[in-house]
Amino acid sequence: MAALDVTPGLMPPLVSVLIPAFNHERYVLRCLDSVLEDSYPAKELIIIDDGSTDRTGARIADWVAAHCMDIPIEYVRREHRGIAATLNELAARANGEFLRPGASDDYLLPGGIGAQVRYLQEHPHKVAVIGDSMVVDGNGHKLHDSGMCDLHGADKSLYLTDDGIRRAVIRQWAIGGPVVLIRKCALDTADRWSEGLRIEDWDLFLRLAARNGLGFIDVHVCAYRLHASNVSRTRHKGARIANLAESRQVARFRAGLFKEPYRTLLRAQSHYIDAKISFLERRPWPLLRHLAAYLALALRARLPSVRQHAEGT
């Protein structure tokens, strides 16, 4: 990977690494260590313990005491407010030109920050850039080389054009882990995380894709950890239905941001989500009705077949 180009005598732009932490005492130290392991020279670390009930807060405090001279650090402990509210507070506290949201159970991979900074410097019209992730288990053992391809079955070639990114973000949410670098100026205006959502990132990336603000680099920028407490991968039927219902609401609410054919794609996706809910609830007639609506809208928007879509989901 090429080194970051820095004009002699000038520091590269400041990156604020944002860590929302909640009940990850087993993983949080690996997360924090990875911030130091990345060689990008101009970064700060901002951490909020979002009301953890285990020893997450104590472990962070010990780490901060040991490394407070290595990197600028701000650490806050407070009551639980949820992931979106915590991310918004972290962004408000940040001083950097670029924001690198993390997760206290995942960790950064060396070189990722520099690669993403380079992309945004070279593409000033882009608001954010995503990369790929490596997938590990609770013990840190590698499960998959690519979170996008191996975990979600994504077609990376779609992410090489604005049209492809819009279609990919709408049809198949394949972003595994904290893989985005965002310009802080975007969040200073309108594109903050929507508070109250359980899974907040799809909503944000839909808004970014709608304005052609999202780019992609085929670089592994983080390790995404799969473990029993992942909110988005729960096997609990009630939780899965709640997550899907939230996604359906996001799809319907954000459809108006897109022009055609992407508006129709998102309407089709909302019916596909409804079909999944009906399947889990064992309601065959609503399932068939939503699949029919999905197929009609998908054909109108010239999507691939339902079978191809299902295979990639």
Rank of each mutant, 00 (worst) to 15 (best):
residue 4 L to K: 06
residue 5 D to Q: 12
residue 6 V to A: 07
residue 7 T to I: 15
residue 15 V to A: 12
residue 22 F to Y: 15
residue 28 V to C: 07
residue 28 V to I: 14
residue 34 S to F: 07
residue 36 L to I: 09
residue 41 P to L: 05
residue 45 L to F: 08
residue 52 S to L: 05
residue 53 T to E: 10
residue 58 A to F: 01
residue 59 R to P: 08
residue 59 R to M: 10
residue 60 I to P: 00
residue 73 I to A: 10
residue 76 V to N: 00
residue 77 R to T: 11
residue 85 A to Y: 06
residue 92 A to V: 00
residue 93 R to M: 15
residue 95 N to F: 11
residue 101 P to W: 09
residue 112 G to E: 06
residue 116 Q to V: 11
residue 116 Q to N: 08
residue 118 R to M: 09
residue 124 P to T: 07
residue 125 H to F: 11
residue 131 G to K: 12
residue 134 M to N: 08
residue 135 V to D: 07
residue 137 D to L: 15
residue 137 D to R: 14
residue 147 G to A: 10
residue 158 L to Y: 04
residue 165 I to N: 02
residue 168 A to L: 02
residue 169 V to E: 02
residue 173 W to A: 00
residue 178 P to C: 03
residue 181 L to P: 06
residue 186 A to C: 06
residue 187 L to Q: 07
residue 190 A to S: 06
residue 191 D to R: 04
residue 192 R to C: 05
residue 194 S to N: 06
residue 197 L to M: 14
residue 204 L to R: 07
residue 210 A to W: 09
residue 214 L to G: 10
residue 215 G to S: 11
residue 217 I to D: 06
residue 220 H to K: 15
residue 226 L to S: 08
residue 226 L to Q: 09
residue 230 N to K: 12
residue 234 T to G: 11
residue 237 K to P: 04
residue 238 G to C: 13
residue 242 A to T: 11
residue 242 A to Q: 14
residue 259 K to W: 13
residue 265 L to P: 04
residue 265 L to Q: 15
residue 269 Q to C: 13
residue 269 Q to I: 07
residue 270 S to H: 02
residue 276 K to T: 01
residue 280 L to S: 03
residue 284 P to D: 13
residue 286 P to Q: 01
residue 288 L to Q: 08
residue 289 R to S: 05
residue 290 H to Y: 01
residue 291 L to V: 04
residue 293 A to N: 02
residue 310 A to Q: 05
